[in-house]
Write a protein that binds this DNA or RNA. Structure first.
Length: 466
RNA sequence: GGCCCCUUCAUCUAGCGGUCCAGGAUGCAAGGUUUUCAUCCUUGUCACAGGGGUUCGAGUCCCCUAGGGGUCACCA
């Protein structure tokens, strides 16, 4: 049985690095019919917030990842941690250290002055005398004095760290509260976590946690330290790149499956495959295939994937998603045409909403450059003539109806398509570019088309009359 | 700075000693399709960080150098 966990500290929103780690854990657990658990690391009472926890849960819900059981809050488990501290104290595997913060600071300064690594010197490790008065002691665990701490990392291979890199670190503060490396080891062991997949910024915590595991006689899980996601240029991921809230991606019009697909391919691959459905990820993901080197955030690829998933979404889903962006299409009679057209051309839902709105609304202004290009010579006249033809035509509904009308017009007038195409385009949207003219006319209807032609001709008269 | 980890196109990556004059994808460029823009299709551009070994043979193994990242709390 594989049991994994995601263990964020609720100090802010969930960013994509965290989401990727969560995804890896989720996939590996689900692939093995195991369990994926959530643990909130809130031992530092001054820094955590309930709001942050809610934000993390919200992000999970958006991308569709579920976890087993209820989230575990470390703040609920202080008594448990306390009992293990007492046990280690009783067994002589941990001890009270009466060194004050000031003394410790002084020691560190001296060590740094001597160009040594700041490190607790173990002065209370075997202390048996009378403890100094007026000091609330911390509890330190006895780390090995010599030798090496060696463990197998499923991604990076054998990691060897010299014992003198690991000092007798504090497991309980002077106020009695337990510290991070201690509680992580206990919780992982007690929760039955078999595979720890986490960011490689935790690589150096692992030997410390191993000290705890061994002192308590717990079985070690497998460790996988996933390289970080770097920003563009190979530097730390910045807020405007991917360090922002995962929910910002929703607000920017990304589909959750696009984000997940993007993230799973950052550091992991399967041959040449780029597109992965959740089912395919579930079928193939293995943390031991994760690359040992860091990867960079690549917004272009995310956009490409998002465009791909938009194209392959049902119109019904898109219509309902678009409501978050102020576009209400569920009851629109030309909904299918509209969505068929725009899902082919947009990279985000937000962009789609903007472009749909542009077509649905009468242009408020006309691009001067477009006019210059489209309205040469007798363009106004041609457009007016097209208007009259449209008016006198009968009932028109489908894009093909409008298309034949346009074709007839071009033939009768003995002009190229561009002669009417460009002016009509500016009349309809205010600029050059955009969807097929027949499609647009069909969507907005005959009446609105005529109205826009008329509006535009009036605009030309008023501003460009010669 | 000490320690640990990493190093294939601009970017994500394939490659697990010969099948690699290094493959795919994104980006970029050109062409085609289209009434325009976008999509789409085709083609092209672009890499084994450097230097030593090991080996009949190295992108693949080892060492060194350089570069990058991480970490050194009574934070998590």
């Amino acid at each position: 049985m594989v049991v994994t966990r995601f263990a964020p500290s609720p100090t802010g929103f969930l960013h994509i690095g965290g989401l990727r780690t969560a995804l890896f854990n989720y996939l590996w657990a689900r692939r093995n019919d195991g369990e994926f658990k959530l643990r909130i690391e809130d031992t530092d009472m001054s820094r955590n917030s309930a709001e942050a926890t809610r934000a993390i849960l919200e992000a999970f819900e958006w991308v569709g990842m579920d976890y087993d059981g209820e989230p575990i809050y470390q703040s609920d488990r202080f008594d448990l941690y306390r009992s293990y501290i007492i046990r280690l104290l009783d067994e002589g595997k941990a001890y009270y250290c009466y060194m004050s913060k000031e003394e410790l600071d002084r020691l560190r300064e001296e060590q740094m002055a001597r160009k040594e690594r700041p490190r607790y010197d173990g002065r209370y490790r075997d202390f048996t005398g009378e403890p100094p008065k007026g000091i609330e002691p911390v509890v330190r665990i006895k780390a090995p004095l010599e030798g090496e701490i060696v463990f197998e990392d499923g991604i990076k291979g054998t990691i060897t760290i010299s014992a003198d890199e690991v000092d007798d670190f504090i497991i309980a503060r002077s106020d009695g509260t337990p510290t991070y490396n201690f509680v992580v080891a206990i919780d992982d062991a007690l929760m039955g976590i078999t595979d720890v997949i986490r960011g490689d910024d935790h690589l150096y915590n692992t030997p410390k946690q191993i000290v705890v595991y061994e002192a308590l006689g717990f079985k070690l899980p497998k460790f996988y330290h996933v390289p970080m996601i770097l920003g563009e240029g190979g530097k730390k991921l910045s807020k405007r790149e991917g360090a922002a809230d995962v929910m910002d991606y929703k607000r920017a019009g990304y589909l959750p499956e696009a984000l997940l697909n993007f993230l799973v391919r950052l550091g992991w691959s399967r041959g040449d495959q780029e597109i992965f459905t959740m089912e395919e990820m579930l079928e193939h993901f293995d943390p031991s295939d994760i690359n040992a080197s860091a990867s960079q955030y690549n917004p272009d690829k995310l956009l490409w994937l998002n465009a791909h998933y938009i194209k392959n979404s049902s119109n019904e889903r898109l219509a309902s998603l678009l409501e978050d962006f102020g576009v209400y299409l569920l009851a629109h009679d030309k909904r299918e045409i509209l969505l068929d057209i725009f899902k082919e051309r947009c990279k985000t839902l937000k962009e789609m909403a903007e472009q749909i709105t542009e077509v649905l609304e009468t242009p408020k202004e006309y691009d001067a450059k477009a006019i210059k290009k489209a309205m040469k010579g007798d363009a106004s006249e041609i457009l007016a003539r097209f208007g009259r033809k449209l008016e006198s035509a009968g009932e028109l509904h489908l894009p093909t109806d409008y298309h034949s009308l346009l074709e007839d017009f071009v033939k009768e007038s003995q002009i190229g398509f561009g002669k009417i195409g460009m002016p009509l385009r500016v009349a309809l949207t205010g600029r050059l570019g955009g969807p097929d003219l027949s499609d647009m006319m069909s969507i907005i209807g005959k009446k609105e088309t005529l109205q826009r032609v008329e509006n535009f001709l009036r605009h030309m008269d008023m501003n460009y009359a010669s």
